[in-house]
């Protein structure tokens, strides 16, 4: 392998990781925008999304993949809605710490529930491993191609929904001022519900893509969620484009860094960038929304 493909492949790896982070970060930032709290349990939506697909394609259901994916996504969205209904709805008026801790509790609950059902062992969807397509010395597998294409589709979808639809308008209004939005006749609960559904769908899609590309385990959500936190912070609070940019930046930076520093510090890269951004441009994250 000579130099150019070596670096290009690294960039590609970075983009792939970045797409996954961005999908997670967008879901996270959506809920943050509307409800004003960091949903710690988002990682569990990711993980359960992947496991729902696992459930659907294995016995006794054994659905084919094209049928199983929509089923898994619908169930993930239902789980998200159920989370809101059971936990966050009673807490609409609560302060942030309360919400945050409830989310941590929920995350514990859901993660261990998955471990109870499937064990701590790693599972796999069991599709045959294939060598990637080779283009100009770069390798890309169908799953990875799917990650990039589907991420782009999701981003466009979220954009259209958020900025071009009535629902998106309501969401943005809600994010700006809950009480004012209510007075102006926006169905707040319905809007919040749709935010949960979209956020869960993003989580489910991300989780399934991640698991298709790698494996499933009960901690797959949490480990990636921390990066998604950093991505939202780097990109700016509650800002969809920021989440996207933050995800890609982290993905690229940590993969490129692996070539030059001890890979033991791979995970630190995201946080170091985060701290640098805080030092240089603190106003990015002081809480204004700049949609």
């Amino acid at each position: 392998m000579d130099s150019l493909p070596y670096y290009l492949q690294t960039v590609l790896n970075g983009v792939l990781a970045g797409c996954i982070y961005a999908l997670f970060a967008m879901g996270l930032t959506l809920i943050y925008g509307v409800l004003n709290f960091v949903n710690f349990a988002h990682g569990e939506l990711i993980m359960w999304g992947a496991y729902f697909l696992f459930l659907a394609i294995s016995e006794p259901f054994a659905l084919p993949l094209y049928a199983a994916i929509p089923v898994a996504l619908v169930i993930t969205a239902l789980l998200g809605a159920a989370m809101d209904f059971a936990v966050f709805r009673p807490l609409r008026q609560a302060n942030r710490l309360t919400l945050l801790i409830a989310a941590i509790g929920l995350s514990f609950f859901l993660r261990n529930a998955a471990q109870l059902f499937w064990g701590a062992e790693v599972q796999t969807y069991g599709f045959e491993i294939r060598q990637g397509y080779q283009w100009f010395g770069l390798y890309l597998t169908p799953q990875q191609l799917a990650i990039i294409v589907i991420s782009v589709i999701c981003i466009i979808g979220v954009y259209l929904l958020f900025f071009k639809s009535r629902m998106g308008k309501s969401m943005r209004a809600l994010a700006d001022n809950l009480d004012l939005a209510r007075i102006s006749g926006i169905h707040t609960e319905r809007t919040i519900l749709s935010a949960w559904v979209i956020s869960s769908l993003l989580a489910g899609v991300g989780g399934i893509l991640l698991a298709l590309d790698t494996n499933l385990n009960p901690e797959m959500g949490v480990t990636n969620l921390i990066k998604a936190f950093a991505a939202t912070l780097i990109g700016g609070v509650g800002n969809i484009w920021g989440a996207l940019a933050g995800g890609i930046i982290i993905g690229l930076a940590e993969n490129i860094a692996v070539l030059f520093i001890s890979p033991g510090y791979k995970d630190a890269v995201a946080f170091v960038i985060m701290v640098l951004i805080l030092l240089v441009r603190p106003y990015v994250v002081i809480g204004e929304r700049r949609d």
């Binding site: 936990v87 409830a102 514990f108 609950f109």
Partner: peptide, 11 residues
Amino acid sequence: MVFGLILVLLM
């Protein structure tokens, strides 16, 4: 799980 549940209920 119980831990998590207690936290949620407590909140």
